[in-house]
């Protein structure tokens, strides 16, 4: 197996955690870790792992375009737009970790096959990775859903500066994903940051407003979905199984992380990164040449 060469741009929580995960991969090799400041904690981590680093942002790839096959963009929605203009011309596969929604939205447990043929694959948001698989199942079992709402709470310490500045894009992209995958007419996404100590695990609740809920069928489907997500996100678990309360379906998910760069409470970091690695690995397996 020849490992695909990847570059990570963005040395914050997401980028650094991705790097650690990729170090374990049999299909991927990180050849360049790019940020803007060599003294940031993420850079220090990469240097300690013996990874080649650059503080020249996108210039690093412009200067050496043949260094990699895949670029993970873990910057911000605003920067990702600018990066894609360049990376598209250079013919790179981009896995976009920001909510810039430039490419196809990807939930590995639902649409892996159609995602890995794209040039720009958007990993939606952490809350989207946690909630959309369930919203998809609700959409599969019920017709004409008026409204689905997804609420995520994450530990304050797991949300870095870009996440905080990107709250509006988080909401827009998560809502778009929920609508697209569930076919609900309307969707709403809400994000809470909770500063409690010890830090809370990531939790996501999915609400669907509908009559005639098929709770028993949903329970079976949800169990199957959790098994398939657990293959790439081991800490994905059902907290409250589907119930029907006050005119709505309620399902609650908890996501614990692997504790790679941030501790285990940061399930939000883990779920989007595990999903991205799963996509990149599948791409590597399908493109052995």
């Amino acid at each position: 197996m020849i490992k695909k060469r990847v570059a990570i741009i963005g040395s914050g929580n997401i980028g650094t955690d991705l790097l650690i995960k990729i170090q374990r991969s049999s299909y991927l090799e990180c050849v360049l870790f790019i940020g803007r400041n060599l003294s940031s904690p993420g850079m220090a981590k990469a240097i300690s792992l013996g990874i080649k680093v650059s503080d020249e942002s996108i210039q690093a790839i412009i200067k050496d375009p043949d260094c990699c096959d895949i670029v993970f963009d873990a910057t911000s929605a605003k920067d990702a737009i600018h990066h894609w203009e360049i990376l598209e011309k250079l013919g790179k596969i981009v896995i976009d970790m920001t909510p810039a929604k430039l490419g196809g939205l990807c939930i590995p447990a639902v649409n892996m096959a159609e995602s890995i043929i794209l040039k720009n694959i958007n990993m939606i948001t952490c809350g989207g990775q946690a909630s959309i698989p369930i919203a998809y199942l609700i959409g599969k079992l019920h017709k004409d859903i008026e409204y689905i709402e997804v609420v995520s709470s994450i530990a304050s310490k797991s949300a870095g500066p870009a996440t905080r500045l990107n709250l509006d894009e988080y909401i827009e992209t998560t809502e778009l994903g929920v609508k697209l995958f569930s076919n609900a007419k309307n969707a709403k996404a809400i994000l809470n940051l909770n500063p409690a100590e010890p830090c809370i695990d990531m939790q996501t609740t999915i609400f669907a407003k509908l009559d005639n809920p098929k709770i028993d069928e949903l329970k079976i489907e949800v169990d199957k979905m959790i098994t398939s997500i657990k293959k790439y996100v081991p800490g994905y678990q059902l907290l409250v199984e589907p119930i029907y309360e006050n005119g709505k379906i309620v399902v609650m998910i908890k996501v614990q992380g692997l504790g790679d760069y941030l501790p285990k409470y940061a399930g939000n970091l883990d779920i989007i990164n595990c999903a991205a690695v799963a996509v990149a690995e599948q791409f590597a397996i399908n493109n052995q040449s």
Binding site: V151, S153, I190, N192, N194, P195, A196, E197, Q203
Partner: peptide
């Protein structure tokens, strides 16, 4: 220590 918005 739940905060406003965590009604779920």
């Amino acid at each position: 220590r739940v905060v406003a918005g965590q009604e779920d």
